[in-house]
C-alpha cells in the first residue's frame, strides 16, 4: 500500500519546551491506526500539525499520492484536500440543529458565493439521512445540537467528519466520557468509517483500542516509542515503564 500521510523529522517547541521531538511515522491509504501515549506526549499536537493549526519548526508533512506538502497550506485548504478532524472536546455548533451541522460539513463547494446560492438537493438530503442513521441520530435531526448528550455530540462530530468525506480522519479521544454502550457504538462507527478511508484514533482507553483491533503507535515526549500490534507494544519494556506501568 502507498502511504497517505508521511510525517518526517518534525520538531515543535512551545517557548523552548519540545512538545514534538523528531517525530516520524506514516499512515497508509485506508489504514486504521491507534495512537496512545501518556498525557502531554504530543498526540494532540501531532493532529494540530497535520491540520495546519500549529506550524512545525522543522520537518516535513507530506500528503497523498502526489506528495504535496501540507505545511504550505491553510487550515481550510488542508480540510478541502481531504483531512478531517475531531477535537478532543466535542465541538459542534451548539446553536444549530443536528441537520444544519451535518449540512455545513457536507462535501460541497465552499466559496462564499456558491454557498450563498446553494440549494438543497435530494442527494444531499439523502446523504444527511444516511449519515444520521450511521451515527444513530436519525430521531434528533431537528434538535438543537447543544441539547444533545455528551456522547451524541461526539457522534455528531464524527458524522460531520464523515460528511466531509475525507481520505484521512483524525480523531482525538472519541470515547472520553462515554458509557460502555456508547463506546461500543463509537467503535462500530469508526470501524465502518475505516472501510473506505484512513482513520487515526488517539485514545487512552486500552479496552477501546483493543476493540479497534489495529496497528498501534505509542508516542512519548514527542516521538515514537514503539509501534506494532497492541500485544506487541504492551509487552515493550519502554512502553510499560513510561505509560502502562503507572
Amino acid at each position: 500500500m502507498s502511504s497517505l500521510l508521511e510525517v518526517s523529522g518534525v520538531f515543535v517547541s512551545f517557548d523552548g519546551f519540545k512538545a514534538i521531538n523528531n517525530l516520524s511515522f506514516s499512515i497508509d491509504t485506508g489504514e486504521m491506526r491507534a495512537i496512545i501515549g501518556p498525557n502531554g506526549a504530543g498526540k494532540t499536537t501531532f493532529m494540530d500539525i497535520v491540520t495546519g493549526k500549529t506550524r512545525p519548526d522543522e520537518g516535513k508533512v507530506v500528503w497523498g499520492s502526489d506528495n504535496v506538502s501540507l505545511l504550505k497550506m491553510s487550515e481550510s485548504q488542508i480540510a478541502r484536500a481531504g483531512v478531517g478532524r475531531k477535537f478532543q472536546r466535542p465541538t459542534v455548533f451548539e446553536d444549530q440543529s443536528v441537520r444544519e451541522n451535518l449540512a455545513m460539513a457536507l462535501r460541497n463547494k465552499r466559496s462564499p458565493f456558491s454557498v450563498l446560492m446553494y440549494r438543497k438537493t435530494h442527494q444531499d438530503a439523502a446523504r444527511i439521512d444516511d449519515l444520521a442513521e450511521e451515527i444513530g441520530l436519525t430521531a434528533d435531526l431537528k434538535r438543537r445540537s447543544g441539547d444533545l448528550s455528551h456522547g451524541q455530540k461526539q457522534w455528531l462530530e464524527i458524522g460531520m467528519l464523515l460528511a466531509q468525506d475525507p481520505q484521512l480522519l483524525l480523531i482525538d479521544e472519541p470515547a472520553a466520557g462515554m458509557t460502555v454502550a456508547e463506546r461500543d457504538h463509537t467503535t462500530e462507527i469508526l470501524k465502518q468509517a475505516a472501510k473506505t478511508r484512513a482513520v487515526v484514533v488517539v485514545e487512552h482507553d486500552m479496552d477501546f483500542v483493543r476493540k479497534l483491533d489495529c496497528k498501534v503507535t505509542v508516542l512519548h515526549e514527542g516521538s515514537v516509542l514503539a509501534e506494532g500490534s497492541l500485544d506487541h507494544v504492551t509487552q515493550n519494556q519502554d512502553v510499560i515503564d513510561v505509560y502502562l506501568g503507572r
Binding site: S74, E75, A79, M104, V115, L116
Partner: peptide, 22 residues
Amino acid sequence: KFGSVVRGIRDDEARVRFLGYH
C-alpha cells in the same frame, strides 16, 4: 447554508476552518 456558516464563524471560527471553509 450561508447563514449557517456565518453563525458557525461567530461561535467557533477555528472549527469552521477545519470544515474546509475559508
